[in-house]
């Protein structure tokens, strides 16, 4: 016997007594139909309890007002971010989106210091870690303070290594790239790709951090050959 039509399986869920015995017999011997039957029973179990509660009046207007708030013109923020990619080959929304993110980061940094849990400096070195942590950044999501891991700048001899240990970056297509953004909000350098998705080590010239490149940023980058920041940041934090 070929598989039972889902309609007949639905009948078996809804009115088991009315269902022809051949349908029942088939399901007993066919794992595929048994799975569908179980799924339909599951849906039957899920219906009937919930009702939808509309969001309070006013939320819609506030959402639309926030959505219509344009980020500052790109020129104000990203001017010194020289790009080797001709402007024409960029996708339109790249700069504004990035500018919005950067503006948010700058605002965040400016307003920081209160209410943010920062790893004390210098943090105690981890047992297996021969270097000393000279600075650390709690990484958080951009649109909330959700924990996204930590980045530690470790000094070993004369070298500074940035150890990124991120979490819950999501599973968006592309690869994750680590950047250092200057606290002046206008300059950034790419450190490299998080090859295993959320952890990696990057050697950083000591002077760079001293110059103010202290905001650790993790972006998701499409595999499009464009070396500039995609504008999509998954996590950020300031080394302190």
């Amino acid at each position: 016997m070929s598989h039972v039509d889902p309609d007949r399986l639905a009948e078996l869920v809804l009115a088991p007594d009315d269902s022809p015995s051949d349908v029942r017999r088939h399901v007993e011997s066919c794992s595929e139909c048994a799975v569908t039957l179980a799924a339909l029973s599951d849906v039957r179990r899920l219906v009937g309890e919930e009702s939808l509660v509309p969001a309070p009046a006013g939320v819609r207007d506030r959402v639309m007002a926030q959505a219509r708030t344009r980020p500052p013109p790109a020129d104000d923020v990203v001017r010194p971010l020289a790009s080797t990619v001709p402007a024409a080959s960029r996708r339109g929304p790249r700069i504004p989106v990035w500018a919005a993110g950067l503006a948010a980061a700058v605002a965040l940094v400016a307003g920081l210091g209160i209410g943010r849990v920062t790893v004390p400096e210098p943090a105690a070195p981890e047992p297996e870690d021969p270097g000393s942590v000279v600075a650390a950044a709690d990484l958080t999501a951009l649109d909330s303070d959700a924990d996204r891991g930590v980045a530690r700048a470790v000094s070993v001899d004369d070298m500074v290594t940035l150890r990124v240990s991120a979490r819950e970056l999501g599973d968006e297509d592309g690869f994750h790239e680590v950047w250092l953004i200057n606290v002046d909000g206008t300059r950034m350098v790419a450190l490299g790709v998080l090859a295993d998705w959320d952890t990696g080590e990057f050697q950083v010239p000591r002077g760079l951090i001293e110059e103010g490149y202290r905001i650790v940023d993790i972006s998701v980058e499409p595999e499009d050959g464009d070396p500039t920041h995609s504008g999509v940041s998954l996590a950020r934090g300031e080394l302190a």
């Binding site: 969001a55 939320v59 506030r62 959402v63 926030q66 959505a67 989106v97 919005a100 649109d143 909330s144 999509v232």
Partner: peptide, 11 residues
């Protein structure tokens, strides 16, 4: 709810 839709728009 407000944050979800604003975040949806921005991302």
């Amino acid at each position: 709810t407000q944050q979800v839709f604003v975040a949806a728009w921005r991302s």
